[in-house]
């Protein structure tokens, strides 16, 4: 119970910028909507993962933010990597929910898409990341009014102190169809930033 945990790395995606540990690693000055922005960013990182194009907006956002953090971890997918994923947001999968709803609004002539419907759950993005890195780990998706550092902190501490996870990838991934914001951080025994409510809020607000 006395083990100290740290924030090993953190990533933010907002305002057409992607940053890692406060340094901007990608930015796009053009006026792009979210889907164009995230695709351009994906291209710039040279990630070869065709499934990306099948994902909905929320999954693309969560996937890319996770990619920024996890690609540095040199994860060997042949080995056990017990990194839990704990995400949260305000809008759940509402953008995709609206797409599915639109597709069934005309009752006499509708063809709802299974590829849309499958993304009408917020935790699908956790599944996408788990598949990419072969993470057979603990998952949870929470919905809050706004970023809730305390609930995330305590849940993460619980997973680590009970050995349910060795590290936890957690944070906020919000996409409502127009606005987007990702703030993910990796909690570990290694690192220099203390895993405390104050630090999490400070990082979130930078």
């Amino acid at each position: 119970m006395n083990t100290k945990y740290y924030i090993k790395s953190f990533c933010q995606i907002k305002d057409n910028k992607i940053s890692l540990n406060k340094s901007v690693i990608y930015k796009n000055e053009d006026t792009l909507d979210f889907l164009d922005f995230i695709k351009t960013a994906y291209r710039s990182f040279e990630i070869n993962y065709p499934k990306f194009f099948k994902m909905d907006g929320l999954s693309k956002l969560a996937f890319l933010a996770s990619e920024v953090l996890l690609s540095r971890e040199k994860i060997n997918t042949e080995e056990e990597n017990n990194i839990a994923i704990v995400f949260s947001n305000k809008s759940s999968s509402l953008d995709t929910d609206k797409k599915h709803q639109e597709s069934i609004q005309d009752k006499d002539n509708y063809y709802p898409s299974p590829a849309v419907f499958v993304y009408t759950l917020p935790n699908i993005c956790i599944g996408e990341i788990s598949i990419k890195y072969k993470l057979h780990s603990e998952n949870s998706f929470f919905i809050f009014d706004s970023f809730n550092a305390e609930y995330l902190l305590e849940y993460t501490k619980s997973l680590l102190s009970t050995n349910k996870a060795k590290e936890v990838l957690c944070g906020w991934v919000e996409f409502n169809g127009i606005e987007y914001e990702a703030f993910l951080y990796l909690v570990s025994k290694e690192g220099t930033i203390a895993h405390t409510k104050q630090e999490i809020i400070k990082l979130y607000n930078t």
Partner: peptide, 17 residues
Amino acid sequence: LGLDSIDALELIVMLDK
């Protein structure tokens, strides 16, 4: 092409539509 079960369902919708 690396298609999966969701793609198969999507093609079924396409045939119908």
